[in-house]
């Protein structure tokens, strides 16, 4: 399965090593891992991602296929968690494999920028003051639009 929706935490290093083990001589692999953020300005104690699983699986598979076609990738994988997670835990991992680094980087960035606005996940942050839905950022739409 090259697109996986997960509830449990995953091991980013183990996933990367498994992906690299099947690289078959390709010259460039990129791994991006998105983590639950916690800063002093934004003291998140936990993050819950709601997910529409049937649509998420379909959207992420389309996105993976589009990235492979557009950047001539040899392989691409997407892992995305949903449910409740804690600061520092991985949320998402995107891995791309290409003959050269330019396409591997671009493919991973394209997948992440598009996934943010086009895959059905919704973040709810818990802080000491209660829980709140994260609002979509205009900046994310702008990053998505760069690929149109």
């Amino acid at each position: 399965m090259t697109v996986r929706l997960l509830v449990s935490p995953f091991d980013p290093g183990a996933e990367t090593n498994r992906f690299l083990a099947a690289s078959e001589g390709a010259g460039a692999a990129v791994t991006f891992t998105g983590l639950v953020r916690r800063t002093s300005d934004d003291p998140v104690t936990a993050l819950t991602l709601e997910c529409y699983e049937a649509l998420a699986q379909a959207q992420l598979e389309r996105l993976r296929d589009a990235a492979i076609a557009r950047f001539s990738l040899i392989a691409a994988e997407i892992l995305h968690r949903h449910g409740r997670m804690l600061p520092g835990e991985p949320i998402v991992q995107v891995m791309t494999l290409a003959p050269h680094r330019g396409d591997a980087f671009a493919g991973a960035e394209f997948i992440m920028d598009t996934l943010k606005t086009d895959a059905p996940f919704w973040k709810k942050e818990e802080t000491g003051d209660g829980a709140r839905w994260v609002e979509a950022k205009g900046e994310d739409d702008a990053r998505r639009a760069r690929w149109d």
Binding site: G34, Y52, K116, A119, W122, E135, A136
Partner: peptide, 10 residues
């Protein structure tokens, strides 16, 4: 039909 707010994954 699914109806939902703007998506905020990743």
């Amino acid at each position: 039909l699914a109806l939902f707010p703007p998506m905020t994954g990743g």
